[in-house]
């Protein structure tokens, strides 16, 4: 069963523990600037929206990579950056229409969510279940899918 991150913005209090957990798990430091999940703040609505890679089927980042540095993780379905192969050209960062692949100046490589290999630290850290890791079919992905299909130029035929 393939699982996905399911984000329920209404439940998010903006505590940013997900960002801390992500940064610590993946970069070894508590630095939200290095987090692969990011909580966006909407002051006027009083809302917080955590957002990260949806591991979309189209995988523009992977299709655009010139050196085969982004691959599908067979176990989790995530699209993973192979750090030793990535040359840091950043083409994936402009190709991803969700804006969820970012360049890390410190390493000269790109970073994106890889679901922590199947045990995402953000979901574990979230105290309000705004971020859960559940069966992909249950995530009501439709809004993201609609965005994905509108952005598609070379989708599977």
């Amino acid at each position: 069963m393939l699982r996905s991150l399911h984000i329920t913005p209404e439940k998010c209090t903006g505590c940013l523990q997900c960002e801390m957990a992500c940064s610590f798990e993946n970069e070894g430091v508590f630095n939200p600037a290095k987090s692969r999940i990011k909580v966006f703040t909407f002051h006027e609505e009083g809302r917080f929206v955590p957002y990260t890679c949806t591991q979309c089927a189209e995988a523009w980042c992977m299709q655009a990579c010139p050196v085969e540095a982004i691959v599908v993780n067979a176990a989790t379905g995530s699209k993973d950056v192979l750090e030793d192969v990535c040359v840091g050209c950043k083409v994936c960062t402009i190709a991803c229409p969700f804006g969820t692949v970012n360049y890390n100046q410190a390493t000269g490589k790109v970073i994106k969510c890889d679901l922590c290999g199947g045990d995402p630290a953000c979901a574990t850290a979230c105290p309000t279940e705004a971020i859960t890791y559940i069966d992909s079919d249950m995530t009501g992905y439709e809004r993201m899918r609609a965005w994905a299909s509108k952005t598609d130029t070379a989708a599977s035929a």
Binding site: C92, I94, A95, C96, F98, G99, V101, N102, W147, T151
Partner: peptide, 15 residues
């Protein structure tokens, strides 16, 4: 700009 830069493409392409 290095963070979330791809969303510019997304907003353009989805009109």
């Amino acid at each position: 700009l290095t963070q979330h830069v791809g969303v510019l493409r997304g907003l353009i392409q989805t009109r």
